[in-house]
Design a protein around this nucleic acid. Sequence first.
RNA 1: GGAGAAUUGGCAGAGUGGUCGAAUGCGGCAGUCUUGAAAACUGUUGUACCGCAAGGUACCGGGGGUUCGAAUCCCUCAUUCUCCGCCA
Length: 423
Amino acid sequence: MIEINRIRENKDEIIEKLKKRNFDAEPIVSEILSLDQEWRSAKQKKDDVCQEMNSIAKEIGQLFKAGNTEEGNAKKARATELKEVDKDLKDEVDNLADKIQQSLYELPNVPNEEVPAGGTEEDNVVVSTHGELPDMDAEALPHWEITKKYDLIDFELGVKVTGAGFPIYKNKGARLLRGLINFFLDEANKAGYTEFVPPLMVNEASGYGTGQLPDKEGQMYHVTEDDLYLIPTAEVPLTNMFRDVILNESDFPICVTGYTPCFRREAGSYGSDVRGLNRLHQFDKVEIVRVEHPDKSYEALDGMVKHVASLLEKLELPYRILRLCGGDLGFTSAITYDFEVYSAAQKKWLEVSSVSNFETFQANRLKLRYKDANKKKALVHTLNGSALALPRIMAALLENNQSENGVIMPAAIHNYIGFEKIA
RNA sequence: GGAGAAUUGGCAGAGUGGUCGAAUGCGGCAGUCUUGAAAACUGUUGUACCGCAAGGUACCGGGGGUUCGAAUCCCUCAUUCUCCGCCA
């Protein structure tokens, strides 16, 4: 959420920058500013009435104490009158504040300077490409064939037990998954991230805190009986641990990591995109989250990008880094780098990580601030990234490393998974 | 799931209808004393919002209500603790 003060002061700049998202902010911003005017004047009025009520109440108290009940009762009439006025004004103020809040929720984050203009993923900029693309012959199997061939994942069984998009990993498939999770967590630990095991369900306030609510309501599984949401990413609980927190400057940098399953309804997805492991309702992911001083957040972003790159290097997967264009940028993000690995049999790039700086957008919703040396409070910057999402990594590992002798696993994870090849 | 108790400022803890934004202690900050430090003493010390300012408003777990007036009374929700039940 963009701070209202920033809108008051930099209206034109915000409108201009949001154009990069193909988002016409002018109507909402104007609406907010005019509501804000109304709100301020209504609040002033209300405060004045409250002041009078408070002083009358005080007088009445003194009159009664002095035994002057007659005059006291007379004043009650005026107080009762004011109470009506106050009630109306309170409704007006609340109503206006609520409208402002709703409109603020509709504004996406202001993109960073470096975000390229553009409407769709076509316009994302390839920052760099690493590794050689394997040249597979035509018989190369897509991962859903490989998993069947070696009995690594049972998609149909998942359908029986739960539904489509809930695969059941087994044998070396299960061990590969588990080993990769441990590998990613160990690497994150080595890079200085503190490990957490967070809850897999969060309350509504947390959903708002990181920005999944209200704009992505339909993407989360909602347990209505208890009004809890299954997390779509560990970002939600990991970042919300810091909701309503005031940090000291000495607390920075804050680097946390956690592994969780992630649950996404993925309403509206279809076709080859959802084949095999490409898109699931439940998948596993190791997430890294950072809470940073505003001056240091881009340095942190850089470090996160390097960390993710190092994981892919160790897994010996060809990958590329994209800078997302305005149109493809997530609602809450100021800048995002996507990592894609090349899936040799499907012959396409699969997104396996998304690293973002949210600047103050989440912090504002989270009321996550820090106290500087002069004890002034200011919003922090929050960042997060996948390090990494498991299914597509597995898909690429299986497809890219297939051979007549089985699927050869990269050396970096041999000790984690307990085998060198799947045959 | 049932019964009971509790929730107050950074912490501890008073406060049961008006003068309470809230005693007191600890902690924090500033000062006196000291070569320095400690101790002692003195003063000071919440947050947010509106306002150019003066100033004002709100906040005693959240929300609602009673009242001229609520930290204090009522309703409701949440959380914590104790006891019982159930259970990996």
